[in-house]
């Protein structure tokens, strides 16, 4: 019954295991040895994807100041050894100075504060099928009525096999309506 479920190359493994059990009974240690070798060689390392995708953020850069009510461009170079999956970009406040930073740059943060109307949003994007590289280019509008301050801009990227890579950028959103 078990055999029915096991596909082609696995059959060999199971057959050799049955032989192995049989051979325990007749105490043929050397045959056991050979069969264990055969089992080890059942390993099929062929097509499994074992690599995470790669994110290279072009913009926004760390510690950049963005103006409220305006748009900014998210640009990044994605790559994977097999096939890219999809990506998500997310923004949330860092008024409490927690951190997700994935680069070593430390930005100068404003005083800690309690959010009134913090910006929290995220966007899912798909990548056309079959791509090993992709350049993301998305226009992100910044709402005009949100709290200014320190924010985290998170990028998450998957490949087709489900490996995920993360990257984060700290940005500062400033008021656009300051006039001197």
């Amino acid at each position: 019954m078990i055999v029915a479920w096991i596909k082609k190359d696995k059959l060999r493994c199971v057959v050799s295991y049955v032989l192995l059990i049989k051979n325990f009974m007749i105490k043929k240690i050397l045959i056991f040895n050979i069969l264990v070798f055969a089992l080890f060689s059942c390993e099929n390392n062929g097509e499994r994807d074992m690599q995470k995708p790669v994110i290279e953020i072009i913009s926004p850069q760390s510690c950049v100041e963005l103006q409220r009510g305006e748009s900014f461009t998210f640009r990044a170079q994605f790559s994977d050894n097999v096939e890219l999956g999809s990506y998500n970009i997310e923004i949330h406040h860092n008024f409490d100075h927690h951190s997700h930073s994935t680069d070593n740059v430390e930005c100068e943060l404003d005083e800690k504060k309690t959010p009134v109307k913090a910006w929290a949003d995220n966007w899912n994007y798909t990548i056309p099928k079959g791509q090993k590289t992709f350049e993301a280019n998305n226009e992100i509008p910044i709402p005009a009525d949100i709290d200014a301050g320190d924010y985290h801009f998170m990028v998450r990227l998957t490949d087709k096999s489900g490996w995920q890579q993360l990257a984060a950028v700290s940005v500062k959103i400033i008021l656009s309506d300051i006039h001197f």
């Binding site: 995220n122 899912n124 998450r156 998957t158 096999s161 489900g162």
Partner: peptide
């Protein structure tokens, strides 16, 4: 784990 995102997470 899939390659898709939902509510911002994998």
């Amino acid at each position: 784990p899939t390659s898709g995102y939902y509510e911002g997470l994998q």
